[in-house]
Design a protein around this nucleic acid. Structure first.
Lengths: 202, 202
DNA sequence: AGAATGAGCGAACAGTTGTAAGCTAAGCGG
DNA sequence: CCGCTTAGCTTACAACTGTTCGCTCATTCT
C-alpha cells in the first residue's frame, strides 16, 4: 500500500471515528482527542500527524456535512423533475436526510450556535448555499426583486431547518404532521410574498 | 444574618457566577463545577449543599432565563398599547433583550439543541409560552382555526428567535436591517395565512 | 544502494476535573 | 443553655485531559 494512500486511510478512520461518536447526548465539543484516536485505532499522539488540533478536525466534519447536504439538494432536484410538487418533495427529501443521518444534521444544528466563531461561520456558509439557490429559483419563478427573494428564501430555509430539529426529538409517527405543517407555513410565505410583490392585486 | 437567608445568598452567588461565565465562546456545558465554585467564592465541595450536580444548576439557569423572557413579553405588551405597531414593537423589544442580555439568550439558543434532553425540553417549554400567547392573539384578531393559528405563531416565533441569533454575530449597524427584514417576513406570513383563511377572496 | 522522509508509537508530564470523607463552627429549636 | 442541624471547609484520590520528546522503521527519492 502506498504511503500517501495509507495516510489518507487513517485520516478517514479519524473522521469516521469522530462522526460515530457524535450522538444525541454527545456534541463535538465533548469529544476528546484521546477518545477519537482510540476509536480510530491509533495512538493519541499520532492524531497530530493529520490535524493540528480538534478544531481543525471539527471544521473538516462541518465541510463534509455541508457536502452531504449539497448532494441531497441535487438529489431533490431530480425528484422534483419527475414528481412536480416542489415544496413537498424538497421537504420530504430533507426530512429523509435528517432522520437517516441524524448525527450529521445535529453537528450542523449545534455548531450553528456553538462556541467557535469559525464553526459558526462555516455552518452559516453551508446554509447560505441553500438560501442562494432557493433565492435564484424564486427570482425566476416569481416576479420578485432580488432583496425580497433572498429574505423569502432565508425564511423558508430557517423554517425547514427548524422542522428538522423538531424531528430529532419527535417520535417518527409525528414526522408527517411536522412535514405538512411546514408545507403550510412555506405556502403562506410564498403566497404573502407574491401578494406584496403585486400589491395592487391583493 | 439568618441561616436560610445566608444560604439563599450563596445560592444566588453560584447562579450569578454561572451566568457571568457564559459568553460567546463558553457554553454551559464547558463550565466546570470548580470554576463556578471559585467565582462564587466557595469551596468546590460546598457546591453540593445547593445543587445535586451541574445539571440541576443548568435547569435553574434555563428557568431564570425563561422568566426574564416572560417579563420581557409583559413589557412589550405595555409598549404596544401606547405605541400601536404590534409587530415592530415586539421585535424591537426582543432585539433589545438579545443585545442587552446576550449571555442569557445564548443559553436558551444553545441548550435548545444541546446534549441534554431535559435541557432541550425545558427550553422548548419556555418557547411554547410565547407560541401559545401569540397563537391566542392571532385567534382573536384574525378569523383563523386553532390549528392554523398555532402553526402561524410557531413560524413567527422561530423567525424572530433566529433573527436574535443572527444579531449575536452581526455588527450593531446591521440590527436595523435584521429587524426590518424580519418584519417583512412576518407580514408575509400574516398576509399569506389570512389569504388561506378566506380562500375564496384571493 | 544509501540517505531522507514521515507515520506511528510509548512514556512521561503538568493540569484539570468530579466527588468522597471527615471536621469545624455558627444558627436554631427545645 | 444544651444538643442538633447543616453550610462550608480542607484534604485526598482516581480518572482523565492535551501535548512534548525521542524513538522505530517502512516507504520514497536520489
Amino acid at each position: 500500500m502506498s504511503r500517501a494512500e495509507q495516510k489518507e486511510r487513517t485520516r478517514r478512520a479519524i473522521i469516521n471515528a469522530a462522526f460515530s461518536q457524535l450522538s444525541a447526548d454527545k456534541s463535538f465539543a465533548s469529544l476528546s482527542l484521546r477518545e477519537v484516536a482510540r476509536e480510530a485505532g491509533i495512538a493519541p499522539t499520532s492524531f497530530y500527524r493529520h490535524f493540528a488540533d480538534m478544531d481543525e478536525l471539527g471544521l473538516t466534519l462541518v465541510d463534509e456535512a455541508g457536502l452531504m447536504l449539497r448532494q441531497l439538494m441535487r438529489q431533490a432536484r431530480q425528484r422534483i423533475e419527475k414528481n412536480g410538487s416542489v415544496i413537498r418533495t424538497s421537504i420530504e427529501t430533507f426530512m429523509e436526510f435528517v432522520t437517516g443521518n441524524s448525527n450529521v444534521f445535529r453537528l450542523l444544528l449545534r455548531e450553528r450556535s456553538g462556541t467557535s466563531a469559525a464553526f459558526r461561520s462555516a455552518v452559516a456558509r453551508e446554509i447560505q448555499h441553500f438560501v442562494a439557490e432557493l433565492a435564484e429559483y424564486l427570482r425566476k419563478e416569481t416576479i420578485c426583486p432580488d432583496e425580497l427573494a433572498r429574505a423569502q428564501a432565508e425564511a423558508m430555509v430557517i423554517l425547514v431547518f427548524h422542522t428538522g430539529a423538531d424531528a430529532l426529538d419527535a417520535p417518527p409517527e409525528q414526522y408527517s404532521y411536522l412535514t405538512s405543517r411546514t408545507i403550510t407555513q412555506l405556502r403562506w410565505l410564498a403566497h404573502g410574498a407574491a401578494g406584496y410583490g403585486r400589491k395592487a392585486k391583493v
